[in-house]
Design a binder for these strands. Structure first.
Length: 556
RNA sequence: UGACCCAUGGUGUAAUGGUAACACUACUGAUUUUGGUUCAGUCAUUUAAGGUUCGAAUCCUUAUGGGUCAACCA
């Protein structure tokens, strides 16, 4: 009940306000949105925000969302990207109503171009790119008309058809709208509609040698699909005037464009160009490198779709520039993982503990899989005279509020017994090689009658059957909050320590791990199996550490 | 030296002319067989200056700051 009240009280973002107004006024009975990626790269966390926005709106209001690939530039687009994009949208948990490609509309778009020519609103220009640029003017100076601007409708039609027939080489001619070379908006100065590219298209093959520009494809595709709310990022604001102009003069369904500020996250980059560079120049192992902000990278790292959706929901949507703290993403991650991750014990930098008064051959103990989940069940743990604990869980000279193991100090071994450190054994160089401890037999977890209270609880593994793991510890990819905003090349700011490979010694149950599992290595962090694992070598990715207020205190 | 968009705590979003709210972060403290989790608490006169109004984060003006626009990219 309180949740419902909360939901209703939650205020609308500016797009929801527009939509509610449109629905209330009867302008639309239901809405149509679309997610329109260009298949020339992998989706990243910024796209996730756009996906959640577009799909979220049609989950909240009547209507549906299409997936449409904006594939109008054959030289950069590939089927590999189409496949990855579809996989990522699905993985995030969204289902599109229709799958479209702008290239499906090439015949229609061609007809639209002809229509504009017939209306005297488009012409073929033979100018070179340099000539066009020099006539374009600048934001403060008007442009000048091209000498081809006054061609007759017949001549324009004939030339455009011949462009399509492949009679002219790349770059020799373009089709442009006839609007106003002195327009205050540079995009309205006779924008290019079609260019010649004798290139193989990933879907239409060699059928076409002319391809529409973004401005002559996007809005028209929206209109063909009867998209009611075409949502894009702020840099397209100046395009809206052209978007509307084309729809008006083509006399087609009036889709409307609305713009929001793209979400930026600190300590990473989300420009496709830069991400591609990281991949091709091998600064990372691939698009799905767990350090990448790509959806596939986050997936491999161990992020859950739920946590990403929660994050997108929390950061909201607005029209101002922003740089969201990656800490919020990590918070959403931890919050979800805490609820679902299976607890396991893994020791990274082991030191042997010999329990001198333990006389048995060993025993089986039980531990809960997840204290946050009543139905999480329990698992068996083997315990014996020799175990490993974390080397940094012991200090010979302990500071005041040190709750871990120290000479004469007691700690609990998680799900096992309370032990006390009696003796420190060192080698010739003074390195600690063993800790001799005694245990309290009546302090067994779940059956503790010792009445001893200890402040610290340590994770441990049984020396006899611990299994070895490779663990990849990731840190932020960049050393600075906004690499794109720094002087020089963004790659100068790559964090050289973003990957550290360490060994871990784990309880045997981890042998059964599968890719989909999420684990919390107790007192360490959240981890998942990596696809690089083989039958005899287990590789784990550290998804994110646990919050650690002890380390924080130490630094002060 | 033009046009357009934007400006609320460290961060991200609310407040739709009427008590500046929520979340994250940070800091206190409590609980805890994970120094995790959980719980309680603390942290802002809304970029500036004028104006309208009984009343302004909100409306108006100017200034300042940030962003965008001159690819045959999207």
């Amino acid at each position: 009940m309180p949740d419902e009240i909360k939901k209703e009280e939650r205020s609308l973002n500016f797009l929801e306000e527009i939509i509610e107004e449109d629905l209330k006024s009867g302008k639309y009975k239901s809405i149509v949105t679309r997610f329109p990626p260009e298949p020339n790269g992998y989706l990243h966390i910024g796209h996730a925000s756009a996906i959640c926005l577009n799909f979220g709106l049609t989950q909240k209001y009547p209507g549906y969302t299409n997936l449409r690939f904006d594939d109008t530039n054959p030289v950069t687009e590939e089927t590999e990207y189409v496949d990855s994009i579809k996989e990522d949208v699905h993985w995030l948990g969204f289902e599109w109503k229709n799958e479209h490609f702008a290239s499906d509309y090439f015949d229609q778009l061609y007809a639209f171009a002809l229509m504009l020519i017939e209306k005297g609103l488009a012409y073929v220009d033979d100018s070179t790119a340099e000539e066009m640029a020099s006539l374009k003017g600048s934001p403060t100076e008007p442009g000048k008309d091209s000498k081809y601007r006054t061609r007759s409708i017949e001549e324009n039609r004939e030339l455009f058809v011949r462009m399509k027939e492949g009679e002219f080489p790349d770059g020799s001619r373009i089709l442009r709208a006839k609007i106003d070379m002195a327009h205050i908006n540079m995009l309205m100065r006779d924008p290019i509609l079609y260019r010649i590219k004798h290139a193989h298209h990933h879907r239409t093959g060699d059928k076409w040698c002319i391809y529409p520009m973004y401005d002559f494809a996007h809005g028209q595709s929206d209109s063909i699909e009867k998209v009611t709310h075409s949502i894009c990022t702020l840099e397209f604001v100046p395009h809206r005037e052209l978007y509307d102009w084309l729809i008006e003069h083509l006399e087609i369904f009036p889709s409307h464009q609305y713009e929001f500020a793209r979400r930026n996250i600190n300590y990473t980059v989300t420009s496709k160009r830069k991400l591609l560079q990281l991949v091709t120049e091998k600064h990372v192992t691939g698009w799905d490198d767990p350090r990448m902000p790509t959806i596939s990278g986050l997936r491999r790292r161990g992020y859950t779709p739920d946590s990403i959706r929660d994050f997108c929901d929390r950061i909201g949507v607005a029209k101002r520039e922003n740089l969201v703290d990656v800490g919020l993403l990590e918070f959403c991650l931890r919050e979800h993982l805490n609820k679902i991750a299976l607890r396991r014990m893994v020791v990274f930098d082991p030191v042997k503990v010999i329990i001198t008064n333990y006389t048995g051959v060993g025993e089986t103990l039980q531990s809960e899989n997840n204290p946050e989940d009543e139905n999480g069940g329990i698992r068996d743990l083997t315990f014996s005279k020799e175990i490993y604990i974390e080397r940094n869980d012991f200090m010979e000279v302990a500071p005041k509020k040190y709750f871990r193991l120290a000479p004469g100090q007691m700690v609990r071994l998680k799900s096992a017994y309370i032990i006390k450190c009696d003796e420190v054994v060192k080698d010739a160089e003074g390195n600690i090689t063993e800790l001799h401890c005694s245990y309290i037999p009546e302090s067994k977890s779940g059956a503790d009658t010792s009445d001893i209270k200890v402040k610290g609880t340590l994770h441990w593994v049984n020396a006899a059957d611990a299994i070895e793991l490779e663990v990849r510890e990731y840190d932020r990819l960049f050393k600075v909050e906004d690499p794109s905003d720094e002087d020089g090349d963004f790659k100068e700011y790559i964090n050289p320590d973003s990957l550290k490979i360490v060994k871990g010694f784990a309880e045997p149950s981890l042998k059964a791990a599968i890719l989909a599992d999420r684990f919390q290595f107790i007192r360490k962090g959240y981890y998942c199996l990596d696809k690089d694992s083989t039958g005899d070598k287990l590789v784990f990715n550290r998804t994110v550490t646990l919050k650690d207020s002890w380390v924080k205190d130490q630094k002060k």
